[in-house]
Design a protein around this nucleic acid. Structure first.
Length: 495
RNA sequence: GCGCCGCUAGCUCAAUUGGCAGAGCAACUGACUCUUAAUCAGUAGGUUGAAGGUUCGAUUCCUUCGCGGCGUACCA
C-alpha cells in the first residue's frame, strides 16, 4: 500500500520521474500545457484505419502512454484514451534529434500528443508514424505492471482513478451505469413523468424502514436533521400539489451494515403517477426492463453469474402468500402470530420475541422464497403490517396492493397502490409508533406535515422505487455493489 | 457485530521444519531504425501491515491492534 506521503520522502521511482521533469523543463518544455488541438479520438482513428492509412492522413491524437519499446534510434509505444488504444512509431530521423531526446524522457503513464501520419506496420497494426511528439501532462508516480495490471481490491476501491486508468473494462462498466440510468430516464420521460429534486437534508425522515444518518444545522440552533432514507413522502406531496407524474434519481442514506448488496449511500429511482394503481406500475416496470434488456442483453437473455435470466416474457406474477405456501407446504394466512413463529422455528429461521406476525412472515419469505426468485417475478399482495404506506387491497383488507420485482434472487424494487386515505395513513403511523415503543428502532415516524398534505387530498396514485445499484449489477454481471459505485464506502486508511 | 482467510520491492507473486528475503514486470546504465509481455548485458530497489512476546535466530510460532476480502448477522 502506498498512501500519499509528502513528496520529499518519496520513493526513488518518483524521484527519477521528478528528475526527468526537471530535465524537460531545463530544455524549455512545458510539462503541463493548457490544451492540445486533437484531430481525432483514438476510436475514430481506429474505425477509419484503412482509409486513413491508405491516404497517409495527417492526424493529431492524444492519450496516456501505456507501453514503450525503445530500440536505439527508433521506438514504439501505445497510447490509450477512454475507449481505444493506438500504437505510435517514433523514428529519430522523422522527428528530429531534439524531439527524439524529449521522447526518451517520457515514460509510461505520461499524457502525450502525437502529430503524424497513419500507416500499417509490417505486422499489420494500425500505427501513427510520428512527425512530432508532445508532452501533455507528466506523471510522477509509476503505474502498476502492464501484464498483470492492478488487481488488489483495496487499492482498486480506494484509488478508483488508478483502477479506471488501468482497467478498460471497469471504465466500460461505469459508462454502462450511466447508460442504464439514462435508459430508465428515457422510458419515464416518454411516459410524461417530470424529473424533480427534493430535499436530502430532512427535519423528519420517512418513506422506508431504516436507521438514518443524523447531523446538526447550526443556523437553526443546532437543529437535528437527517439525511433522507427515501424521498417517497416528498414526491407524494408533489402529487398532492397537482403534478401528474414525477420521478427522482435519489441518493439515499441508511445507517446500516455494508455487504455485497448494501452500501450506506445508494441510488434509488422513485416515481409516482396520479390515477394509477399498482397494476399500472407493473406495466411501467416491464417497459423499463424490456428496454434495458433490449439495450444491454443478447436477445433478451441476461447471463448473470451462473443464471440465464429471460426477459422476453415479462415478469411472472405471484402472490406473497402463494409463494410462501409453495415453499413451506402450508397456508400461513390463517395462523396466529405464535403459530407462525413455531413454523419459522421448525424451518430453522431465527425468531425473536419482538417480531410481529408480518415480520415473521417476512423472515420466512426472505429465507425460503427470495433465493428461488431467479427469473423476473413480481411478488404481489403483502400483509398489511409490513407496508405502512401502501393502500389496502381492494378485495382483502389484511393485504395491501404492493409488489416487489425480483431478478436473480434479489429485490430490485418496491411498488404500491399508494395509501391516500389520511385516516388510514394516520392509523398505520400510529401502529408504527407502537412498534417503536416496543423497541423497533426502524419503525417509521409519524410525519404530521405529510398527513396534513394527504388531508388536502391525494388522487389515487401508483408509486415505485427501483434499486439502481442492483440493476446496474445485473446488467454488468457484477456481484458486489462496490463494483458499480465509483467510490464505495471504506474505512479510512491507517498511517 | 461474529467467523474464516489475507497483508512480502512501484505492480503481480515466491520463500522447505523457525536458519543469509527471491523472481518477473516496472525503474536505472549500455547495445539495438518495424517492435508489440521487444531482446541482450549490467545496476539498484525491502522497517516482510503495526506493536509486543517466545527463541541463539521469526516472513514463518503466539498475543494485541489496523486495513482488506469472503461468509454470516443486521438491513427491504
Amino acid at each position: 500500500m502506498s498512501p500519499g506521503r509528502p513528496m520529499e520522502e518519496q520513493h526513488h521511482l518518483v524521484q527519477v520521474r521528478r528528475q526527468h521533469l526537471e530535465e524537460l523543463e531545463q530544455r524549455g518544455i512545458d510539462a503541463y500545457p493548457h490544451r492540445y488541438a486533437r484531430s481525432h479520438r483514438l476510436a475514430e482513428v481506429v474505425a477509419e484505419g484503412e482509409k486513413l492509412a491508405a491516404a497517409e492522413t495527417k492526424v493529431m491524437v492524444a492519450g496516456r502512454m501505456m507501453s514503450k519499446r525503445r530500440h536505439g534510434k527508433t521506438a514504439f509505444a501505445h497510447i490509450e484514451d477512454e475507449d481505444a488504444r493506438l500504437q505510435i512509431y517514433v523514428r529519430r530521423d522523422e522527428v528530429g534529434d531534439e524531439n527524439y531526446e524529449l521522447f526518451k524522457l517520457l515514460e509510461v503513464g505520461d499524457h502525450v500528443g502525437v502529430e503524424g501520419s497513419m500507416m500499417f506496420t509490417r505486422t499489420g497494426e494500425l500505427t501513427v508514424k510520428a512527425a512530432r511528439v508532445h508532452l501533455l501532462g507528466k506523471t510522477l508516480r509509476p503505474l502498476p505492471e502492464k501484464w498483470h495490471g492492478l488487481t488488489d481490491k483495496e487499492i482498486r476501491y480506494r484509488q478508483r482513478y488508478l483502477d479506471l486508468l488501468m482497467n478498460a473494462e471497469v471504465r466500460r462498466d461505469f459508462r454502462r451505469r450511466t447508460e442504464i440510468i439514462q435508459t430508465i430516464r428515457d422510458v419515464l420521460i416518454e411516459d410524461a413523468f417530470l424529473e424533480v429534486e427534493t430535499p436530502i437534508l430532512q427535519p423528519m425522515y420517512g418513506g422506508a424502514t431504516a436507521r438514518p444518518f443524523t447531523t446538526v444545522y447550526h443556523a437553526l440552533g443546532d437543529l437535528k436533521v437527517y439525511l433522507r432514507i427515501a424521498d417517497e413522502l416528498y414526491l407524494k406531496r408533489l402529487i398532492v400539489g397537482g403534478y401528474d407524474r414525477v420521478f427522482e434519481f435519489a441518493k439515499d442514506f441508511r445507517n446500516e451494515g455494508m455487504d455485497r448488496t448494501h452500501n450506506p449511500e445508494f441510488t434509488m429511482m422513485e416515481c409516482y403517477a396520479a390515477y394509477w394503481d399498482y397494476e399500472d406500475v407493473m406495466g411501467l416496470v416491464e417497459r423499463v426492463f424490456a428496454r434495458l434488456a433490449e439495450r444491454f442483453t443478447e436477445e433478451g437473455i441476461l447471463q448473470y453469474g451462473e443464471h440465464r435470466i429471460d426477459f422476453t416474457k415479462g415478469f411472472r406474477r405471484a402472490r406473497f402468500f402463494d409463494l410462501l405456501e409453495e415453499a413451506v407446504g402450508q397456508d400461513l394466512r390463517k395462523l396466529s402470530r405464535d403459530e407462525v413463529a413455531a413454523v419459522a422455528r421448525d424451518l430453522g429461521v431465527e425468531v425473536d420475541e419482538s417480531m410481529g406476525w408480518g415480520k415473521l412472515l417476512d423472515e420466512i419469505f426472505s429465507e425460503k422464497v427470495e433465493p428461488t426468485l431467479i427469473q423476473p417475478t413480481f411478488v404481489c399482495d403483502h400483509p398489511r403490517e409490513l407496508s405502512p404506506l401502501a393502500k389496502r387491497h381492494r378485495s382483502d383488507p389484511d393485504l395491501v396492493e404492493r409488489f416487489e420485482p425480483f431478478v436473480a434472487g434479489f429485490e430490485v424494487g418496491n411498488a404500491f397502490s399508494e395509501l391516500n386515505d389520511p385516516r388510514d395513513q394516520r392509523a398505520r403511523f400510529e401502529d408504527q409508533l407502537r412498534l417503536r415503543e416496543k423497541g423497533d428502532t426502524e419503525a417509521q415516524r409519524l410525519d404530521e406535515d405529510f398527513l396534513r398534505a394527504l388531508e388536502y387530498g391525494m388522487p389515487p396514485t401508483g408509486g415505485l422505487g427501483l434499486g439502481i445499484d442492483r440493476i446496474v449489477m445485473l446488467f454488468t454481471n457484477r456481484h458486489s455493489i462496490r463494483d458499480v459505485l465509483f467510490f464505495p464506502q471504506m474505512r479510512p486508511e491507517g498511517d
